[in-house]
Design a protein around this nucleic acid. Structure first.
Lengths: 203, 203, 203, 203
DNA sequence: AATGAATGAGGTTTCATTCAT
DNA sequence: GATGAATGAAACCTCATTCAT
């Protein structure tokens, strides 16, 4: 660092971050409203309140936008699921809390994607790295299943399987609830949680 | 017939099915191979061995083609699920048979759509009429749940809920199996069937 | 060929050929008028009197269009150069005829491209095959140079070099003439032909 | 300076030329590498190490940049051609020196534009003023032709014509040499110079 | 003077649909 | 009924240019 050197300060201002977020949110909303087809970059731009070209400052191309949206949502989901869950709570309480966290998320309008079945058809990079990231995101869920098996309470199956048996039904149910296929009352909800629990505990 | 003319020979083999079926099968295959984006009417036409315009003799437009494909597949699925199931078989055997019917279908390659998660993103007409049709298609499933409740064996929940709790996990699991996310061994498969059963029976 | 076979006749009608030709001609004209930049597919379509999408029935993409135009023009040029030239005419008459053929072509509006220097910047496929094709197209020119060398009249240089020394100046001159850089009178034209001749004959 | 800030260090080396020159050089390089199509202002900015907007301090618009580049290169060319040429050298030596100066320039890599045929497709302002400027730049060439005619050695044609007949073939040849169409040996080079000389001297 | 994020018109290309044959 | 060439709207994406900082 001599007399010819100088310094440039770059402020990644909240406003700039705002733009990328706005684009992601616009994409999520439109994807939920019109599905995968009716999603054009022009629409995203209009909804986000930016010019079409601006999207390409933040995302390589349409595919990149969707990939990043996938990751973004996944992170949100993982975060939401783990809310109010700590590893020293009783197992059944942890299970119930997470189950209801998923339910709430799918019911509310915050995460409009999770509930329309569009989420799964988002392009994902199916590689080892991605798998590890997901595992880390859903650590709390993982921990619960592991603890349950260690206590001899859950069936001796891989966590992946336990999740599929007990938490996926929650999402399926929520989807039907939101789509109006079937309205789920509070009593039925409690029964569904119990049934999900029954699926994975030893009898 | 001048110097600009030339000749193409086409063998109309007895194997050529009727055009509508060929179009539907071509669509299913291409949808499984290239997903929703990579599906163009010209591709369907080429794969089906018909002219692009011919598709419009049998289907109103692209949406109609996809709707009809949805119904077509749904009928196949319902038919497959009910195979080797009669209403006087023991409940658990009925359940196990249907569960495995779903699994087999999702694992094999003759119903390429069901297993890639593309099926759910097909456009569906979500109306009363459609709901009734589905109910009729899945009558055997319905009957099993009703019988189980009448016998006091199943939880007193609507059939819709019982299905979501015990059969949807099968589809989710199959999807993961096919996508390579998780390879399901025979022992795990048996355990999963038992767990699905545990979810809906009274304890 | 059994009872299941049938025949389809395809007429490559003159009208259809017309469309491809019209697109090529439109491209040539616009390229001469507006240069390489101001050439958009929309403009070509409008000038050719077809829809934008129609171009893509006949040409893979823009590059293919330009490639094919290059070949098309090259063939025209080769044909024009060889007009009224036969291998048993005296050498100097053959040379003069070809030189003037080039000149006429560059001066007239038939081949608007050759004279604006746009021609050379058209994308060409620089491969062996292409080189051979060109050699065949310009066979008459080749023959003249070979005959001249056999007669001990021309310098013992490769035909490629002889062409560059005696015919390229014609094109350069014509370009300047058309661009208005320098107006070439008939006497000067004669002198230029003689000078080109002097460049390649032995002294 | 909060958690969103970070720092970049830039060493302003003494080698950094003034910005306008850097922009011109960047343009020349990119034009040679990617041709006319692949040249965007953002690329030029990146290559020159300036911001996109900065270009517009020195050049009206893209066209102006290209115009000025044209003039810039033309001046370089004129300068190079005249190297080691003085008006009291024998005519043939002057001619040979200039011919070889052109050849060297086209063969080497420091004037990347002249040799790829991109140069001619640069936009030029074809007006009287421009013509006069060029005449002044190429004064040495002009002088040689005038002297040759005064001595009764050259044909009595305008200098413009003499140049086209004897020096343009050099450029054409060099282009073919560089493009790999035809590899020119030293003997052929000498022969080509002699042939160019033959084209303009009286016989 | 310099920056570079933002713009949005315009580029190439695709594709659902029509219609003369 | 069947064809497939033609259409042209609309898709994705680029890039010359501006302007607040």
């Amino acid at each position: 660092m001599n007399e010819h050197s100088f310094i440039i300060l770059i402020h990644k201002s909240p406003l700039m971050m705002d733009k990328k977020t706005r684009i992601l949110q616009a994409t999520e909303k439109l994807l939920a409203m019109y599905g995968f087809h009716g999603l054009s970059m022009q629409m995203v731009a209009r909804e986000a309140g930016v010019a079409a070209g601006t999207i390409y400052r933040y995302f390589e191309d349409k595919d990149d936008l969707l990939h990043q949206l996938h990751d973004h949502i996944l992170a949100c989901v993982a975060n939401k699921i783990s809310q109010n869950v700590s590893d020293n709570m009783p197992l059944q309480q942890r299970f119930r809390t997470m189950w209801l966290n998923i339910w709430d998320m799918a019911i509310q309008d915050d995460a409009p994607l999770i509930n329309r079945g569009q989420f799964d058809s988002l392009p994902k990079r199916e590689n080892q790295e991605q798998r590890l990231l997901e595992k880390k995101l859903f650590a709390k869920v993982d921990q619960m299943f592991s603890d349950g098996k260690a206590a001899g309470l859950f069936k001796p199956l891989d966590n992946e399987i336990l999740g599929t048996l007990s938490l996926e039904p929650c999402i399926c149910l929520a989807r039907k609830h939101v789509n109006g296929v079937y309205k789920v009352s509070d009593e039925v909800l409690d029964a569904a949680i119990e049934a999900s629990w029954d699926a994975i505990v030893q009898h």
